[in-house]
Simulated scan of single mutants.
Amino acid sequence: MEKAKKFLELTKEESEPVLELTFPPHSIGTESCFYEYFALKGMRVDHFEPSLIYCSFKVPPRLTNRGGNLASGAVANLVDIAGNAVARKKKGETIKVSVDMSILYISLAKIGDDLEIVSRLLGQSGSYYGIVVVVKNKTTGEVDAEGRLSLLGKQTSKL
């Protein structure tokens, strides 16, 4: 157990960048929260159709692992956000809940890589949505990850 603790312990050089992060205070409806600032900053929608969305994202250092690769959790977050975006039919609609997600990690995106995220709605049955999301490197055209997720929207009571 001690060996595992030592392995997971951060060095001073690894922890300093985190200590230097500053975030604006969060006021509901006016400014972004930590999650939006940290995880989503830099993601933009390039093209939108009713069941297809193209997004761009440049890999920032804050979302990489020790090896300088985009962290697998960051990829999962991008898949979840892009998938949820394509399931929303109109502005202001409530966010769906991810009930199942599987991601195939094919290649490693590096700091500074420009990514294209394509989210496609495969189908919908009531408030259940099936979605596929592909994360590609814009420069090489190589697929970095492919995710499939199921979302569940707000259901009306049958009582």
Rank of each mutant, 00 (worst) to 15 (best):
V75A: 04
K89C: 06
V75I: 15
E49P: 02
V99Y: 02
L104W: 03
E49M: 11
V45P: 00
L52T: 01
G42E: 07
V75S: 01
P61K: 12
V59Y: 07
R88F: 00
A87I: 10
S102D: 06
V86M: 02
R66F: 11
S51D: 14
V99P: 09
D46P: 01
N69E: 10
A76S: 15
R66L: 07
A76M: 13
S102Q: 14
P61E: 12
V97C: 01
N65A: 10
N84P: 02
D100G: 13
R66K: 13
R62D: 08
K90D: 09
L104I: 08
E49W: 05
T94E: 10
I81T: 14
G92E: 05
S102L: 06
V45W: 03
V86A: 01
I103D: 09
M43H: 06
Y54H: 14
D80I: 02
E49G: 06
T64D: 04
D100Q: 14
K58P: 00
R66H: 06
K89M: 04
I53W: 04
I95C: 09
R66M: 08
S51V: 06
G67S: 08
I81A: 13
G83W: 00
V59N: 05
G83Q: 04
P50V: 00
G67W: 03
R44D: 11
S51Q: 11
K90W: 07
I103T: 03
E93T: 09
S102A: 09
R66A: 12
K91F: 10
S72P: 00
P61L: 08
A87M: 14
T94G: 11
F57R: 01
G83R: 00
V97G: 08
K91D: 07
A85L: 15
E49K: 12
M101T: 08
L104R: 13
N77V: 13
E49I: 01
N69H: 15
I81F: 09
D46W: 02
N84S: 14
P61Y: 08
R62V: 12
A76D: 05
V79M: 04
L52C: 06
D100W: 03
L104A: 13
G68W: 01
R44M: 10
A87P: 00
G73S: 14
I81R: 09
I53G: 01
L104V: 08
F48Q: 14
V86P: 00
T94V: 10
P60L: 13
V59L: 08
S72F: 00
H47Q: 13
R62C: 09
H47R: 15
L63N: 12
A76G: 14
K90M: 10
P60F: 05
L63R: 07
S56Y: 02
I81K: 05
N84W: 02
I95G: 10
G68T: 08
A71W: 10
S51F: 02
A87R: 04
A71V: 00
M101V: 08
G83I: 03
A74K: 04
L52S: 07
L52H: 15
A82V: 05
R62F: 10
G92C: 07
V59K: 05
G73V: 06
G83F: 00
S102K: 11
V99R: 12
R66N: 05
T64Y: 05
I53T: 05
V97W: 06
M43T: 13
I81C: 09
P50T: 04
R88E: 07
S102P: 00
K89N: 08
H47K: 14
V97T: 14
L78R: 07
R66T: 10
L70H: 10
K90C: 06
S56G: 13
N77R: 04
